[in-house]
């Protein structure tokens, strides 16, 4: 009996398509979503450390200021901004607009450009990288 399910036709898989920007961005939306879900652990941990004790906050600040901490924070910042910008495009798609193939390609470039500009801007404003924060 289980054999019958295997004989159903399958839709084409990833490997059959030419790799293009919109499909990479679609995957990136999910990947950054997963990253942000895991990142919520760090956000709550930071919050708890501030409220809990001076030592806990100092330990957390040291970690966030370290090379690994800065890389994690940069990834966090990029993920939040990309997922938000891409998410707004998803909301626009839900209204039925920007769904022509040409528009999907051009809006993909806009999403990438806006994400890069905002990520760099936020990172500079927050004082990240040179010498490490805090």
């Amino acid at each position: 009996m289980p054999m019958t399910t295997n004989e159903r036709p399958l839709s084409p898989h990833l490997s059959i398509y030419k790799v293009e920007l919109p499909m990479l961005l679609s995957g990136l939306h999910r990947i950054t979503g997963i990253a942000l879900s895991i990142g919520s652990l760090l956000l709550v941990a930071w919050l708890e450390s501030a409220v809990y004790s001076a030592e806990a906050f100092a330990t957390m600040s040291r970690f966030l200021g370290s090379v690994i901490g800065q890389l994690v924070l940069f990834g966090w910042t990029f993920s939040l901004i990309y997922h938000s910008v891409s998410g707004v495009r998803h909301l626009l798609w839900d209204t039925g607009s920007l769904l022509e193939v040409k528009q999907i390609h051009s809006s993909s470039k806009v999403v990438v450009a806006v994400t890069i500009v905002l990520t760099v801007l936020v990172w500079i404003l927050a004082g990240g990288f040179p010498g490490g924060a805090s």
């Binding site: 501030a50 938000s84 707004v88 909301l91 927050a126 924060a133 805090s134």
Partner: peptide
């Protein structure tokens, strides 16, 4: 969709707040 729409202003607020709090003492 509803949570996405709600998150648009909330994320903006959060990013501005985190910029203000980054590197500050306890």
């Amino acid at each position: 969709r509803l949570t996405s729409v709600a998150l648009v202003p909330l994320v903006l607020w959060f990013v501005v707040s985190m910029i203000a709090l980054a590197g500050q003492d306890r």
